[in-house]
């Protein structure tokens, strides 16, 4: 049976076995605060959103190991969705399915679908070129990994790949991406210095700018702050929250507080399965599943 997790509604019993909604629809999201009520939140007039991607019965194998088991969920457009779970639960593996990163390594196999809306294409279909997918879906990695080139060239690289030749356009887009990544003011006078001369937090923002330059539809963040200090972490988190106005964001994090701070939806994964998916505010105050409860309260193992 394919289990579909969708955005839960407090008026609905939190039952994961209801059939999934296959048509991307605007869904009213109702939020009930944990500690008390806010009457404006009770009315179902809060921001409604469309579905950006839908994962259906995703299985992923590599080297004979079934790393993801029948994962199904929806990714809301212009929202931050956090993937949490213990090490080895498959959350990074899951994230890397979205941009077909696994195709780089031999012996991997996808089953199921990741449908991207509004075009309604299956990203995992064999006739979809992973290169195209990666242009549409950007990724920011765990450790800042700028190219050992200049700051400017780092951001321009995506544009060069997509065949942009006009210098003026490249300059404009690089500046915009750096502004969007809240880095422009810090680097505008040294665009041609090596990217590695930046601090760790700046490097990570540069990597975000590099991803933003080609205007992806979804940005995947794979533990983006695990190598950064709290101040740099805060600036990245602030950035993520701002970016969701323009892109859809999926973030893997080990830091539950981080998931709480930046995300609207949270998926808890364990042993390759999606155990629970729902609004972050609910998952962190009253998770429905015992495994989730044990994980978020630190009762694992």
């Amino acid at each position: 049976m394919v289990r579909h997790f969708h955005i839960d509604n407090p008026t609905m019993k939190n039952d994961s076995s209801t059939a999934g909604v296959h048509i991307p629809s605007a869904r009213a999201i109702e939020s009930v605060g944990a500690g008390g009520f806010r009457s404006d939140l009770l009315r179902s007039t809060s921001k409604s959103s469309a579905i950006k991607a839908e994962v259906r019965g995703l299985d992923f194998h590599y080297g004979g190991f079934r790393a993801l088991k029948d994962v199904s969920m929806q990714v809301q457009a212009n929202e931050v969705t956090a993937l949490i779970g213990p090490s080895g639960c498959g959350k990074s593996t899951f994230l890397r399915c979205f941009n077909r990163m696994h195709d780089l390594y031999p012996g991997s196999r996808y089953d199921g679908e990741i449908r991207l809306y509004p075009d309604d294409v299956n990203l995992l279909a064999p006739d979809i070129d992973p290169v195209e997918t990666r242009i549409r879906i950007g990724m920011v990695f765990q450790k800042p990994n700028p190219f050992p080139k200049s700051i400017f060239e780092n951001v321009a690289y995506g544009l060069r790949i997509t065949g942009e030749k006009r210098r003026q356009v490249i300059h404009e887009k690089v500046e915009k991406a750096l502004r969007d990544a809240a880095l422009w003011d810090e680097v505008k006078d040294r665009l041609h210095q090596p990217a590695t001369s930046l601090s760790g937090g700046q490097q990570q923002r540069l990597c975000i700018a590099r991803t933003l330059a080609t205007e992806p539809e979804i940005v995947l963040f794979d533990e983006p702050t695990s190598a950064l200090d709290p101040i740099a972490t805060a600036s990245i988190e602030e950035l993520i929250i701002e970016l969701k106005e323009r892109v859809t964001i999926l973030i893997v994090t080990h830091n539950m507080q981080q998931a709480g701070r930046v995300s609207r939806y949270t998926a808890f994964m364990y042993l390759g399965e999606l155990v629970e998916f729902g609004e972050t505010s609910r998952i962190f105050t009253r998770p429905a599943k015992r495994e989730t409860e044990n994980y978020i309260t630190g009762r694992f193992g």
């Binding site: 780089l104 242009i135 990724m139 990695f141 450790k143 590099r210």
Partner: peptide, 10 residues
């Protein structure tokens, strides 16, 4: 990680 960064950009 550098390779993945480049592949990640397409």
């Amino acid at each position: 990680t550098i390779r993945e960064a480049a592949y990640g950009l397409g």
